[in-house]
């Protein structure tokens, strides 16, 4: 930590950690189902049904991690919560509209017929895309400290595009594991597209973030930490190569089907760690630090609840994934 900053309590660190876990869980979990949504136009109607069915039992619980992440921000760091959400007002509204459209599209496309069904398929794609893109824009705006100006907005838009690529990668690798036949083959090709896109995006963010923000630049390129920190992008690059290699074949070995997905998750985890390192100890970069928390008495009461309940949440989420293991079928109710 830099000198002259107030001390950060263990309680604040714990909540920062919990918030990080919730956001990372959200990005990976809802990321794959948003990615599947974005891939919809590239599939035929029978494949579309299997794609939606592969995420049907999970999407709602996946989105709950977003509510938890925002909830922790609200509970633990209320001052930052107000600043961040007001500064991100429009992208947040766009994301919410996107999440609403795609959330109800699950139900409506199943029950609709004819052009209604086509409409909800389209809205499912559009909602997924809008939500993913808006989340990327939020990240981009956040990383630059919400500064006004064309260049900063352009950067945010590019992060938006990059995150879409990342979610497509997650979605495609999820489909490799959860589908078979022609759709699985298509997913292998989609994964490569997503990977190329994400490589471009991660490179862009890694290069641009230190340029637009001095605090971040010092943390990465200062000595003596720099050589060690370079391990992070190097490992990401290695995972990327591995993924490229895995998805290059026409058919994937049956007991290796999950590898691409976990490779994609690894890239997300590493990118997330890099971002967390860039930002720490700030919640709003250069403005509000982790030390500006809610009252310790409130934090404690939430912490006890979280410690008591989170193991159960994880347990029954795991149970749900176990119940719905195996390949997605065309009819969800079978």
């Amino acid at each position: 930590m830099m000198p002259g900053m107030p001390e950060i309590s263990a309680l604040a660190l714990t909540f920062a950690f919990l918030m990080g876990v919730a956001i990372l869980a959200y990005v990976v979990l809802d990321g794959y189902d948003l990615g599947v949504g974005m891939l919809m136009p590239a599939a035929d109607p029978e494949q579309q049904n299997r794609m939606v069915n592969s995420i049907g039992p999970f999407w709602d619980a996946n989105e709950t991690w977003l509510v938890l992440g925002v909830g922790i921000l609200l509970v633990a760091f209320p001052a930052s919560h107000g600043v961040i959400l007001q500064a991100l007002y429009l992208p947040v509204a766009a994301m919410l509209v996107g999440l609403m459209l795609r959330g109800v599209a699950f139900e409506f496309r199943m029950k609709a017929e004819g052009w209604h069904r086509e409409l909800w398929n389209w809205l499912f794609w559009f909602g997924s895309f809008l939500a993913a893109f808006a989340q990327g824009v939020m990240l981009g705006r956040y990383l630059t400290g919400f500064q006004p100006g064309f260049g900063y907005w352009l950067f945010a838009l590019m992060v938006g595009a990059a995150l879409c690529g990342g979610y497509v990668l997650l979605g495609a690798t999820w489909l490799i594991a959860r589908t078979e036949g022609e759709l699985q083959k298509k997913s292998l090709a989609w994964a490569r597209w997503g990977l190329a896109w994400v490589a471009f995006g991660v490179a862009l963010v890694s290069l641009a973030t230190p340029l637009v923000n001095e605090t971040v630049r010092e943390k990465w390129f200062g000595m003596p930490q720099m050589p060690f920190l370079m391990l992070l992008p190097a490992t990401s690059f290695a995972f990327g190569l591995w993924l490229w290699f895995l998805t290059g074949k026409k058919l994937i070995d049956q007991n290796r089907e999950w590898r691409p997905f976990f490779g994609a998750v690894a890239i997300f985890v590493l990118a997330f760690l890099g971002l967390a390192y860039s930002i720490y100890p700030w919640v709003v970069i250069d403005r509000i630090g982790l030390w500006e928390t809610a009252h310790p008495s409130s934090l404690r009461v939430v912490l006890w609840g979280a410690l008591a309940v989170l193991p159960f949440i994880v347990a029954y989420n795991v149970l749900a994934y176990w119940i719905f293991r195996g390949k997605a079928r065309e009819n969800l109710y079978e």
């Binding site: 999970f58 709950t64 509970v75 609840g305 979280a306």
Partner: peptide
């Protein structure tokens, strides 16, 4: 400090429960 924990308990005890078992 009052509203936050009450909302957090709603997420922790209710939202995950209903969302997961709904599936």
């Amino acid at each position: 400090n009052i509203a936050g924990p009450l909302l957090a308990y709603e997420v922790l005890t209710a939202f995950f429960l209903e969302a997961t078992f709904l599936g």
